[in-house]
Amino acid sequence: MICKHCGLEYPDNLDACPGCGTMNDDVEAQVLSEEERDSFSGVTIETDTAQGSAEDYKVYDQEDLHRQEERRAQKAKWSRIWQLVKMNGRAVLVLALIVFCIIFLLPTLLGFALIGLGVFLVVTIFRNYFAGW
């Protein structure tokens, strides 16, 4: 049991809170509508009697609901990104190929071009120098 006055958790069989001495109130569970449950700030227990026995239940609070909503939002975000990639798969492939060429192949091609230019200049200089002999 959790004390309503000081928040201390203690065994259910005690008559009063050992921390502050507040007496236990016998509180019965209330059935809340979905709107009331979502706005309730305490701990709630949800039973699923539609699908199975009354023993199937889930305990959660507002933090659990908030985490579930964040997970749904993240999943929806990544789902939208994945749908965009799937719809534009060829464009993404071409873009990846262009990036690959720019990063890896362009420096290599520029290196070969500079080597070719150097060889051309050396051959031209030697040809002009030895042409007069």
Rank of each mutant, 00 (worst) to 15 (best):
I81M: 13
K77N: 14
F104L: 05
Q74F: 07
Q68A: 14
Q74Y: 08
A73F: 08
L84W: 15
A73W: 03
F100Y: 06
V85G: 02
F104V: 00
Q83T: 14
F100A: 05
K75M: 13
L95G: 03
A91S: 10
C101H: 04
K86Y: 09
V92Y: 15
H66T: 13
L93P: 09
R67F: 12
L65H: 12
R80L: 00
H66A: 12
K86G: 08
L65T: 04
A96L: 00
I81C: 05
A96M: 01
A73Q: 09
K75Y: 11
L97N: 01
L97H: 04
A73N: 13
I98W: 00
L105F: 07
W82P: 00
V94E: 04
V92G: 09
R90V: 02
Q68D: 15
I102C: 10
N88G: 11
L95M: 13
A76G: 06
K86Q: 15
V85D: 07
L95S: 13
L105W: 07
R67E: 10
M87F: 12
V99K: 02
R71S: 15
H66Q: 14
F100W: 02
R67D: 07
W78N: 05
I103E: 11
S79N: 03
Q74H: 15
S79Y: 06
L93E: 15
L95T: 11
V92L: 12
I81N: 08
A73D: 11
I103Y: 08
L106H: 03
I102M: 07
A96C: 10
F100D: 00
A73Y: 08
R67Q: 12
L93H: 14
G89D: 04
